[in-house]
Write a protein that binds this DNA or RNA. Sequence first.
DNA 1: TTATCTGCAAAAGGTTTGCAACTGA
DNA 2: TCAGTTGCAAACCTTTTGCAGATAA
Lengths: 141, 141
Amino acid sequence: MQKNIETFITDTLHKKGMRMTRPKKKFLDFFTSEEYLKTPQELLENIKQHNIDIGLTTVYRMLNYLMEAGLTKAYSINGELRYIFCPPDHHYHMICVKCLRVKNIFDCPVKDVKVDGFKIQSHQVDFFGICDECSKKEVNK
Amino acid sequence: MQKNIETFITDTLHKKGMRMTRPKKKFLDFFTSEEYLKTPQELLENIKQHNIDIGLTTVYRMLNYLMEAGLTKAYSINGELRYIFCPPDHHYHMICVKCLRVKNIFDCPVKDVKVDGFKIQSHQVDFFGICDECSKKEVNK
DNA sequence: TTATCTGCAAAAGGTTTGCAACTGA
DNA sequence: TCAGTTGCAAACCTTTTGCAGATAA
């Protein structure tokens, strides 16, 4: 986890009277640098593989907190909810439909769109495609 | 449900050796003309309010079938999965964050986007805003 | 006629909550 | 010090499955 992200999240926690603890830090270390959409279970297993022991409850509590804070997004894929950390800047997602890798796109391709009687408050663009690594694998098959 | 949509879905069912039955038809009658994101429970309750009796299992089975067929989309909102029927043509969604009304936008605002090493296979654009009806309600408060 | 479908009840999963021990500020 | 946190176990919900009777083609 980058130092500035840790500081940023610690600050948002403190503003809500919450504390930055060892389990939270360990979870964030992993989650903020994870590139793939993961289920809560997978996140826990991945973290335990690094010989770090935290509880599933903590994973759920952190995911819920980060969702509320707008720092995480959930996708429903094949009936499973999968999560990705979203750095604070507004951005778009490029999702590989094969390996579920997520790339953040900061160069906004749609700006100030107004449609019909709707006042647009926010918009999200999610591209689903094949990442370069999965493309290579396909050629080799 | 429009006649052409019923015919279209009946055909896709038959192609998979499935049957268009009374409960399926009753569910589709309601779901294909529903404008708001709904949970499976809500769909069942709404249908029962019209004095039509089908089981929750049928609702789930139809939602799963329609998702697979690409005729329904699920959004995770406040931890709840909510569904909307998607007519076969490619389109975008305009979602009211207050009342969860969904409007289909057929005029594509993003075309043939290519980013980094990704080959784009499909893209989805979902706008979240306030619909005109909710805007009016807000002014009156 | 018969393969598919339905709805119930039960099972299975995923997520949240209560609580006693623990810990960061 | 003590309010907030943790992880376990239990509770809770949502979703799926098994099955016997019903039904579309």
